[in-house]
C-alpha cells in the first residue's frame, strides 16, 4: 500500500440493498490526510452503512472509494475500525497486551518488537499498567481505550470510529472525547469519526459532514467549523456552529417525518 497518500476520496457512493431500499445516495466526501472528519447524522441515516462501505465490509452499489487514485477493496489494516460494541469487539480470551498485539502478528515477525509497539500504543491511551488484565476486568472506557490502542498499533492510514463512545456514560464519554482529541493532536492520525452527538462532533472535528436522515441519505453539508484548537462548548463560536448543525438536521427531520421508513 502506498504510504504517500494525500487524501481519501469517496465519490458518487450509493448503496441499495437487495430488497430495493436505498440507504445511501450519491455520497461525495474528501478526507485530507491528518484531518479529523466527523460524520454527523440522525439515527437511521445510514452512518453505519457508510462505515461498512469505507471499511470494506460491504460493497457499494455504485461509486468509488480511493486513496488518491488507488481504490480500496475489502477490509484491511489501512482502515482499522473502532466499533461501538465493546463487549464483542475485543477478544475476551486474550489479555489487554495480547489484544493490542493481535493484528501485528501478520506484519511484524519479531516478537519483542510486537510487544514494544503494543506497549507504546497502550501507553498512549494510558493503559500500560493493565496489560495483563482480561477485557472482562475492565470498565467500558478502558475497553474502548484497548480497542483504540489495538487500532493505532497497526499504524493505519485512517482510523474509522463508529460511534465509539455511544455506549459509555456521559462523564466517561466526555473524558474519552478530550483524551481522543489529545491523542489526535499528538499523533495526527487521520480519523473518520461517526456520531449523532453534535457537541461531540464539534469538540473533535476539523471537518464536519452532515448526513440527512434516511432512507436514501445524502450529504446536507460539509464544512470546517473553524474553531480554535482548544474547544470550549461555552464559546459563542461553538454555540453558533452547534445551532447551524441543529438547524440543518432539525429542518430535514421535520420534512422527513412525513415519509419516514425503516432504514436499517
Amino acid at each position: 500500500m502506498d504510504d504517500d497518500w494525500k487524501r481519501l476520496r469517496v465519490s458518487g457512493l450509493c448503496k441499495q440493498f437487495a430488497r430495493g431500499s436505498v440507504i445511501l445516495s450519491n455520497i461525495d466526501l474528501t478526507v485530507d490526510r491528518g484531518a479529523f472528519m466527523c460524520i454527523l447524522g440522525p439515527s437511521g441515516s445510514g452512518k453505519s452503512t457508510l462505515v461498512d462501505l469505507i471499511a470494506g465490509f460491504e460493497q457499494p452499489t455504485g461509486g468509488t472509494i480511493a486513496f488518491d487514485d488507488s481504490p480500496v477493496r475489502g477490509p484491511g489494516p489501512d482502515r482499522v475500525v473502532i466499533f461501538q460494541d465493546i463487549g464483542n469487539a475485543l477478544f475476551p480470551w486474550l489479555t489487554v497486551q495480547e489484544n493490542a498485539e493481535f493484528g501485528l502478528r501478520n506484519f511484524v515477525r519479531n516478537r519483542r518488537e510486537r510487544r514494544t509497539r503494543a506497549l507504546e500504543a497502550l501507553e498512549l491511551v494510558g493503559l500500560d499498567k493493565d496489560t495483563h488484565k482480561f477485557p472482562s476486568e475492565l470498565s467500558g472506557g478502558m475497553k474502548q481505550r484497548v480497542q483504540i490502542a489495538r487500532g493505532l498499533v497497526m499504524d493505519p492510514h485512517v482510523l474509522i470510529m463508529d460511534e465509539p463512545f455511544a455506549a459509555l456514560d456521559a462523564i466517561t464519554r466526555r473524558r474519552m472525547q478530550y483524551e481522543l482529541k489529545d491523542l489526535w493532536q499528538r499523533t495526527h492520525k487521520t480519523v473518520i469519526f461517526v456520531t449523532h452527538d453534535i457537541s461531540e462532533a464539534l469538540i473533535l472535528a476539523t471537518d464536519v459532514t452532515v448526513l440527512s436522515s434516511g432512507p436514501g441519505a445524502r450529504i446536507l453539508d460539509t464544512f470546517r467549523p473553524g474553531l480554535p484548537d482548544e474547544r470550549d462548548p461555552a464559546d459563542p463560536a461553538f454555540i453558533a456552529a452547534y445551532r447551524r448543525v441543529e438547524a440543518l438536521i432539525g429542518h430535514v427531520q421535520d420534512a422527513g417525518d412525513a415519509g419516514r421508513g425503516e432504514a436499517r
Binding site: A55, F83, W93, F102, Q147
Partner: peptide
C-alpha cells in the same frame, strides 16, 4: 459475534487466520 469477525478482518487477517485465531477460540 459479527463485530469480532470484522475486527479481525480489518486488522488484516486472512480467511484461514480468521478461522484459527478467531473462530476456534470463540467456539472453545
Amino acid at each position: 459475534p459479527k463485530v469480532r469477525l470484522r475486527a479481525a478482518r480489518c486488522l488484516g487477517l486472512s480467511q484461514l487466520q480468521v478461522f484459527y485465531r478467531i473462530i476456534l477460540p470463540s467456539t472453545a
